[in-house]
């Protein structure tokens, strides 16, 4: 039933290399719920630009390094 979004991301991998940061910790840092982080990781939800920049900033990466666009 889940939608197939054209945006993938490396959040899970980046969390792992950031001292195994949990979804809850990341969610609190960027001000969303854990379920929203989970939905982004599973590509079930595309974050707004603002949230995407916040997430990239947390990991000290550029937005393109965290999110990848795959046009169909």
């Amino acid at each position: 039933m889940a939608v197939d979004l054209p945006i993938s991301n490396k959040i899970r991998e980046l969390r792992f290399f950031a001292n195994e940061m949990t979804q809850q910790e990341l969610a609190e840092l960027v001000g969303v719920t854990r379920q929203t982080i989970m939905a982004i990781e599973k590509s079930k939800y595309s974050p707004t630009l603002e949230l995407a920049f916040k997430i990239a900033e947390i990991f000290g990466q550029s937005i393109e390094e965290v999110f990848q666009y795959h046009p169909k």
Partner: peptide, 12 residues
């Protein structure tokens, strides 16, 4: 309580 304090996030 943590989520309740947060309110609606952008997805909500």
């Amino acid at each position: 309580h943590r989520e309740a304090n947060l309110g609606n996030d952008e997805r909500d």
